[in-house]
């Protein structure tokens, strides 16, 4: 099979992001234009005069990929091209925070774009600062564990739900720990029209600080502990994609990563209860 994301990129060993991109492109094929926001992905894949991309690629800025994509697809369609897909790859920083306004505009207009956010739960390219996606309790360099504050003290922004509130045709969450599920979601989104959004959990070895051999294991455990819920919202209908028969304790997941190492048993309990409550509220 032809690969569209070459192995010569410079991501850290064990990084979840290239795995996300490579598998998504394998499903999407060659007839795509990739729009990328400034991020680790951009830096590791596009240092001039090299490029890891085997499909057309544009990086503009950190906060505007939603609108670059809007313009690109409008241009293609205006030129009579009805087939080429425009796909955004963006990090959580750009999706949840700095590019959120622009993304919301793209969604509200229901522009014909597939937007894939690889979520590593912080600004990794600049050295692990908190984002709207950083989970409760995680220590980052701008939410450090200090004498009076103990990591990020707010919950993660429920971005997929906020995006679904725009009433676009397709919203899904995925994890690279459940690759077949992710690929099938990309496959489904590929041939739909309008704005589609997939949020993929893609662990960061450096920022989460774990053994680089454990990326897939951690991405799986996020789902198995119930902390990362896999679901789809298709034409407004919510459906859980996979529910573990029995949840593993959230502590199993938290204790594998140094970003949580300062947490007290009390805080771990708070996270466990938050997770229990989230699942209790799910209408299945």
């Amino acid at each position: 099979m032809e690969e569209y994301f070459a192995s010569g990129h410079t991501a850290c060993a064990g990084c979840g992001m290239p795995i996300t991109v490579r598998h998504a492109l394998n499903v999407l094929g060659k007839d795509v234009i990739v729009v990328n926001a400034t991020s680790c992905l951009e830096i590791v894949s596009s240092a001039y005069p090299r490029s890891a991309w085997g499909v057309p690629y544009i990086h503009s800025l950190f906060e505007n990929s939603g609108a670059i994509a809007t313009g690109a697809v409008a241009s293609l369609r205006a030129q009579g091209n009805e087939h080429t897909k425009v796909v955004v790859f963006a990090g959580d920083g750009s999706t949840y925070d700095i590019g959120f306004g622009v993304l919301s505009g793209m969604l509200e207009r229901n522009d014909d774009v597939l937007y894939i956010c690889y979520d590593n739960e912080a600004y990794m390219n600049t050295g692990n600062q908190r984002s709207g996606s950083t989970p409760f309790g995680a220590a980052t360099t701008t939410s450090p564990a200090g004498k009076v504050k103990h990591g990020k003290m707010q919950w993660k922004k429920p971005i997929a739900e906020i995006i679904a509130a725009h009433q676009i045709p397709y919203v899904a969450t995925a994890s690279i720990g459940y690759m077949a599920d992710f690929e099938s979601k990309v496959r489904k989104a590929k041939d739909m029209k309008g704005a589609r959004f997939i949020l993929v959990l893609a662990p960061c070895v450096t920022g989460w600080n774990y053994d680089s051999a454990k990326t897939i294991e951690i991405a799986k455990l996020a789902v198995d502990t119930g902390l990362w819920m896999l679901y789809e919202i298709e034409d407004g209908k919510f459906k859980v994609s996979y529910k573990p028969q029995q949840f593993k304790p959230v502590a199993d997941y938290l204790k594998m990563q140094a970003r949580f190492k300062h947490l007290s048993e009390e805080q771990i309990k708070t996270i466990q209860e938050h997770m229990n409550k989230a699942w209790a509220e799910v209408k299945q």
């Binding site: 700095i98 600004y123 600049t126 050295g127 600062q129 360099t141 701008t142 939410s143 450090p144 564990a145 200090g146 004498k147 009076v148 504050k149």
Partner: peptide, 22 residues
């Protein structure tokens, strides 16, 4: 109030640490 961007990030990070330490 800060946002990370190289090469000013360490200023923001250091101030965040001061804040976390009260």
């Amino acid at each position: 109030a800060c946002y990370p961007i190289t090469p000013s990030t360490h200023i923001a990070e250091t101030l965040a640490k001061f804040y976390a330490d009260g």
